[in-house]
């Protein structure tokens, strides 16, 4: 790592430390949520410095975007205040934390140096991925090829976890459509914001599609694209009203599409089974293994993007429809 990169890394990490101290010390929940947004943005910058562009992309979209909005929706319901309390002393947690931290620091003294190419992490399977994936899978972005092809099972598990979280949120909160509510009133128009949002949303959606289908060649993929797409809808909901957004993308459609995404992923595996390969072995999908890999990755990334986008939008709908009910 060059000297200037190391300097940027250290400065950003130090800023992260100060942000964390501010989060721990602050009493205002609103400030805590905003600071955790800043925390996510800083960590996304650090990921860029550490060469993890795909991860930085995801962290910026998820951490600074959706996570902050969901936290704000929640504290809008639970209230901004944090009461003081003196029943438990702070000494015991501090002692526990210091002892654990000291043990961990003692453990790092045996760790190999940061960025050393001969670290054990880089000795095992990583060289095979780096050397073979451009010829075996045939796409330049190794993160996508490892994500969708070599570790396809793992990613399928993650998609199912996201889907299961959606089921949990919907069964806890549910989505209340506002049409039947007699006391519901239209929010006041916000012309500047609405014009701006109308202008921006097509570009955000275009960018999401670019990220989705260009993920084989540059940073991007289904997870990031899904999150960016849902950000477009969330922007629409925030500037217009919940009713407008629910007319645009009805929740019952989203529920079916989220399930469809998981089905596309699993179905690709079943198709490859039927064609005589292993589960999620894309080599058999076309006459040529490389083409098969291309098709397979494109299809399952589409499934991932569909599920993630629908899940994020539905979770957001669930939170805000609950919020308006209890002002």
């Amino acid at each position: 790592m060059s000297a200037i990169n190391l300097l940027i890394d250290i400065v950003l990490l130090t800023m992260l430390v100060f942000t964390t101290i501010a989060i721990v010390r602050s009493r205002s929940l609103f400030a805590i949520v905003m600071l955790s947004g800043i925390y996510s943005l800083l960590s996304a910058n650090i990921f860029v410095v550490l060469d993890a562009v795909d991860v930085a992309f995801t962290e910026a979209a998820v951490g600074a975007g959706i996570s902050t909005v969901l936290m704000l929706a929640t504290i809008g319901i639970t209230g901004y205040e944090q009461k003081k309390r003196r029943s438990i002393s702070r000494i015991t947690p501090l002692i526990v934390v210091f002892i654990t931290g000291a043990v961990l620091v003692y453990g790092t003294l045996d760790m190999p140096a940061f960025t050393n190419p001969s670290n054990p992490v880089h000795e095992h399977v990583a060289p095979r991925f780096i050397e073979q994936s451009p010829t075996e899978v045939g796409i330049p972005n190794m993160v996508t090829s490892v994500l969708a092809s070599y570790r396809g099972y793992d990613t399928m598990g993650e998609v199912i976890v996201v889907f299961a979280a959606l089921i949990g949120v919907l069964s806890l909160l549910g989505i209340r459509e506002k049409k039947t509510d007699p006391v519901y009133t239209e929010p006041p128009p916000r012309p500047i914001l609405q014009v701006m949002a109308k202008f921006m949303i097509p570009f955000i959606i275009l960018f999401a599609l670019y990220v989705q289908f260009h993920g084989d060649f540059g940073p991007g993929g289904g997870f990031q694209a899904g999150v960016i797409f849902s950000v477009a809808i969330i922007l629409y909901t925030l500037t217009f009203s919940q009713q407008d957004a629910m007319d645009l993308v009805p929740p019952w459609v989203l529920k079916r599409l989220a399930a469809l995404g998981v089905l596309i992923y699993g179905g690709t595996g079943v198709v490859s089974l039927l064609k005589g390969g292993n589960f999620l072995d894309y080599n058999v999908l076309a006459h040529d293994p490389i083409h098969g890999q291309h098709y397979g990755i494109l299809i399952i990334e589409f499934g991932v993007g569909l599920t993630v986008a629908c899940v994020m939008i539905l979770i957001f709908f669930a939170f805000i429809s609950r919020g308006d009910k209890n002002p």
Binding site: V62, V161, G221
Partner: peptide, 10 residues
């Protein structure tokens, strides 16, 4: 980590 972030927000 990429997948962990999305699962984390869920």
């Amino acid at each position: 980590i990429l997948t962990a972030i999305v699962v984390g927000i869920a």
